[in-house]
Design a protein around this nucleic acid. Structure first.
Lengths: 238, 238
DNA sequence: CGCATGATTGAGTCTTTTCAATCGATGTGG
DNA sequence: CCACATCGATTGAAAAGACTCAATCATGCG
């Protein structure tokens, strides 16, 4: 992927925050510093696989910091079409969409056993939280720009390669392997997020495998050739 | 367009704010109330057609409220591909992308003679501004969701119809005609924004014209059948 | 008035989707 | 513990949609 696009869409969380304490979970995002945020000050909530943290339309009361696990957010049209608008892992913040209108606009669903910290909106009024919250929201806006770029300008191979590189970077930032990981989401969810059919996602994985870029076994991914994968992003037709 | 999608992507600015005073320009967006924001407290800046308000990479110093005119924001990859990520008219806020990283991530360019109010970031620290700023940013996140939905799930006709309906609603909210307006941007810019080639945009306009939904004459648009246009959004293949 | 930019339209190509069949893994109940 | 049911993934073939290339047509500006 080109540097410009990487700068935009592949935001890297700069420090470890896996199954660590909340302060560490939240710090990499600048949500708060140690003085403001500690383990005891927020209610935690377990979310089981398949359960939603909140639905679109639900009244907005708080934002959530993912402590552990994996979420997707999605918006649904009543004609049945829906789109996954993001995947969220430990240390990331969800629920910001609700601030503007007083209601959430997306569903957020756990893709595996997960735990979040509930951060009541009221708490965000505290002066020192403000700047951090702005940064989190702004970063989200930048991330969205990257997704728009992906959806608007990239072909299937580029989208899938970008997706894998992005996931890899987020995993490594949390202390996991950059080259080997489990996808928590289905092909259909990936396709929805990338604006592709699930078949196209599957075919693209297979093609990458044939080319020796990755080893794919169902949900288990091993990146064999990062360079090649990155090249696939900027080289539409190889 | 379906109601759900409309709720997401077609945010309506609730009151008039065309060539009006700044307080009115900003109010509909909840950026500030009358006590906090008056004509004298912000520097204005004229931006000529084709000039940029700021470039991607420029250090972030302030956000801007569009007083009059029309802007596009776009992100560029060094391989030449770029994408228009939004169009902005009077009363809307640009520059929020810079808060997170300290630099702007998109170019913002005037598509016609325009004027903005410069709102230094420091001013946003004022307590009463905070909530409003959150709302503006959150609304932007929701808008982005709508664009993602558009780019991810809609076919060409639906995208163009959605685009026209959205523009119409934004114009009418500013006291202009809902059914007749001038496009400030080229087919290429529309295409970039919608993830389509300029030819596809042009062809879709022509098809809508053949179907009696709109009258298109270069940049002049007249919507003849709003219902039909909205139907084109939810009815992929009519 | 002529040039330059933007818009339209046509023809052919390519990507991606859709429909459909098969395969594999996982988990449940007998 | 195994058979079966279910869900997800893979793969193929055909079709559709959008893109590219290219020519022509407007419009506006110098």
């Amino acid at each position: 992927m080109s540097a410009a696009a990487a700068k935009i869409s592949l935001a890297v969380v700069p420090s470890h925050c896996g199954a660590c304490k909340l302060r560490e979970v939240c710090l990499p995002h600048g949500l708060a510093d140690r003085d403001l945020l500690d383990d005891l000050s927020y209610t935690r909530k377990r979310v089981h696989r398949g359960d939603t943290l909140f639905h679109a339309g639900a009244p907005f009361e708080s934002i959530y910091a993912v402590r552990s696990g994996f979420f997707k957010s999605s918006v649904v049209l009543e004609d049945g079409r829906d789109q996954v608008t993001g995947f969220h892992m430990a240390g990331e913040i969800v629920g910001l969409d609700g601030i503007g209108g007083g209601n959430h606009t997306a569903d957020v669903t756990a893709l595996e056993e997960s735990e979040v910290c509930i951060i009541p909106y009221a708490r965000l009024d505290e002066p020192h939280m403000q700047h951090q919250l702005h940064k989190v929201m702004s970063r989200e806006l930048v991330r969205d720009q990257g997704v728009m770029l992906l959806l608007g300008t990239m072909r299937a191979e580029e989208r899938v390669a970008t997706f894998l590189i992005n996931l890899s970077q987020r995993f490594v930032a949390r202390g996991f392997s950059a080259s080997e990981f489990h996808l928590r989401m289905t092909r259909e969810e990936i396709g929805s997020y990338l604006g592709l059919s699930l078949e196209t996602v599957s075919r693209t994985f297979s093609r990458f495998q044939d080319e020796g870029l990755v080893a794919v076994q169902q949900k288990h991914i091993r990146i064999l050739d990062v360079k090649g994968l990155k090249a696939a992003v900027s080289q539409p037709n190889e």
